[in-house]
Amino acid sequence: MKSVDVERFAAGDPDAVRQLYHMYGRAVFTVAYSSLRDRGLAEEAVQLTFLHAWRAADRFDVTRDLKPWLYAIARRAAVDVYRRERRHGGRVPLDSNTDIAILPEAFESTWQAWEIRIALDQMPSAQREVIEATHFLGLSQEETAQRLGVALGTVKSRSHRAHRRLATLLSHLQEATA
């Protein structure tokens, strides 16, 4: 996958903004939605994430990895939206006893969701379809084969490759956080 042209993004080039969104937009949304559990608020957090990233892009060191930088901005944007909604008695669906300074547990496990979402988005669509059918739709491999109109053996091999790729990613995550 092509790398993002941060300089063009910093200049507000719409094509560069779209390129960054295509690479990370769904992952940013996943972080926001996993935390906020509300589509409208999550989409607002996505907009704020890209706006903040654009404002800070001219200070970004292009020799560094973009992912953790953007993840930190995304998480912060979700936290900001969450705290604002809590202050204003908004629609974040949480225990009313939760203190505004204490973030719910959902905010703590977003890094893996972010990494898995990016890994899925970078997979061939045929493999991603199998993962979605298994985990999202809860289909068996036989049902997945019927749904996709392919042989059972094809589903098994795609599933194996896709999950192997995720397993490899996880070992990298483990090394990175060890």
Partner: peptide, 27 residues
């Protein structure tokens, strides 16, 4: 944790198709 992430239905929720255009317009 990763299996829990994959099995969490919220992980699979998609943003609106118009969100990309809204991001570009806002910037």
């Amino acid at each position: 944790t990763s299996r829990q992430v994959l099995e969490d239905q919220s992980f699979w929720v998609e943003p609106s198709p118009t969100l990309e255009d809204r991001v570009v317009a806002m910037i």
